[in-house]
Design a protein around this nucleic acid. Structure first.
Lengths: 109, 109
DNA sequence: CTGTTATTAAACCATATGGTTCAAGAACCG
DNA sequence: CGGTTCTTGAACCATATGGTTTAATAACAG
């Protein structure tokens, strides 16, 4: 029962093919076929992945004749990064604790 | 067919209850019951969510008598943030493009 | 018009996900 | 010991997910 925007974004990012597609789109616009090509799956499956990315607001589609041209929409990723950044202190804290232990060990040999 | 570490992490983050649990754990260690309490779901369901977080390496569990004490393990989040940071240029770029348009409009009225 | 290309739609399948309920297992309380 | 508390396990259910294959649709090429 995925509902909030962040739910969609994180879910979209949870599949390697979709992350790869986003990475490809940083190089410029691509149509569905071009996005599908590198992946060992049917065209139709890739098309569904693109739809998931669209649903998360990460891809914008523009129909140009028979081609569906996709463009990266990175803004929602900034929301995800903002959420993660709240935890930055907590992976640094662990390093700080380690440093403290090492420092204490050096000072009391 | 989730497999890579990032797959697990992003999938774990895609459910609001799990994100809330991580947020709670920034306040200190909590047992399963405490993590479950704020959520409108059965104890067993919450327990499963904790297991997902564990599977993603985001939570460490320590059994203390009948309590299972959970602690935040934030490191995998840093991997996720690192992946996202690659895209920072792309949401900034959009803002830059907007600024450029506004600038051009002002200069050629 | 005909054929090829790009894409979606539909039907189907196996498995995962998120939830429930009820039973079972330890550990503490008195 | 007996009862309560914290937690998992198991069975079950509905729906979602990720994949397939086979049409169907639409646009371009000749």
């Amino acid at each position: 029962m995925v509902q909030e925007p962040l739910d969609h974004v994180f879910h979209a990012l949870s599949h390697p093919a979709r992350r790869a597609m986003l990475a490809t789109l940083t190089l410029g616009e691509r149509n569905i076929g071009e996005l599908a090509a590198p992946h060992a799956m049917s065209f139709a499956a890739a098309s569904k992945h693109v739809r998931v990315l669209e649903g998360a607001g990460l891809v914008a589609r523009r129909v140009e004749g028979r081609n569906h041209v996709c463009a990266l929409q990175a803004e929602p990723l900034s929301k995800a990064e903002a959420w993660l950044s709240f935890f930055e202190g907590f992976w640094n804290r662990k390093l700080d604790a380690l440093k403290a232990v090492l420092k204490a060990r050096k000072e009391t040999p």
